[in-house]
């Protein structure tokens, strides 16, 4: 099972590196939308929440693509009839998606934090909360992607069904950055966010597998 999952991850990475524009789009989106916030709210945006909201949107934007291409070329069917459990393979898909969207966002976030004048104590909190939080975002996004993969017009629908589910992540992510601004790195909110991530890792792949089976039955 682990070897199978490794192969899926490797395949997803090869696919991503062959079309680097897709790889770079969420990051460009992230920075571009963040640049819009000072234009809309005036030059002094103090809120760390802006960074979190844009991370949410960037993850949402890319989540529709998790299964789309494989659905179109039929390799998703192969995944479903393979003897390996669907839990592992959907987790592999989600991990590949996270390391292509969530991980780069978390890694460039210190730069953004400097541009938004966050105190140094908050930067580490921002990076850690983004690292943990985007895992949950990718997991939830995969559920939405699996539910809508069989539909032609999945794009607008996926945002409607995923965004409400993103809310707890936003609340706890923002709260842990705020705790970081006040100087405490290991806050209860960060603990809750990590708990959310653990729960989502355990449960979301089950939902993704079931949703894939349902939408492929058409």
């Amino acid at each position: 099972m682990f070897e199978y999952a490794q192969r899926i991850i490797k395949r997803q990475f090869v696919l991503a590196f062959r079309s680097p524009t897709e790889f770079a789009t969420p990051i460009a989106f992230f920075i571009l939308v963040l640049a819009l916030f000072p234009l809309g709210f005036g030059p002094v945006v103090k809120s760390s929440g802006a960074i979190w909201i844009v991370a949410l949107l960037a993850s949402l934007l890319s989540s529709d693509r998790i299964f789309r291409q494989d659905y179109d070329d039929g390799s998703l069917d192969q995944l479903l009839i393979a003897p390996q459990p669907l839990f592992g393979s959907s987790l592999a898909y989600i991990f590949a998606h996270w390391s292509q969207t969530g991980l780069p966002l978390a890694l460039i976030s210190p730069l953004i934090a400097l541009m938004f004048d966050l105190p140094a104590s908050a930067i580490l909190a921002l990076v850690i909360s983004l690292l943990v939080g985007t895992v949950v975002l990718s997991l939830i996004g995969a559920i939405g992607a699996a539910l809508t993969v069989g539909l032609r017009k999945g794009g607008a629908l996926i945002s409607l069904i995923i965004l409400p589910l993103y809310v707890p992540v936003l609340i706890f992510g923002k709260a842990s950055v705020d705790a970081g601004i006040q100087g405490s790195l290991l806050s209860p909110s960060l603990a809750l966010l990590s708990a959310l991530a653990c729960g989502a890792i355990a449960l979301a792949p089950i939902a993704v597998g079931a949703a894939l089976r349902i939408s492929m039955e058409i």
Binding site: I140, I143, L157, I161, A211, I214, S215
Partner: peptide, 23 residues
Amino acid sequence: ALYEAYEDKSIASRAAGILGLVG
């Protein structure tokens, strides 16, 4: 919205059921 997006209503209800449970 998810329920109405599917033509086949038994698929639609199971997809919407998963979404409801996640929610």
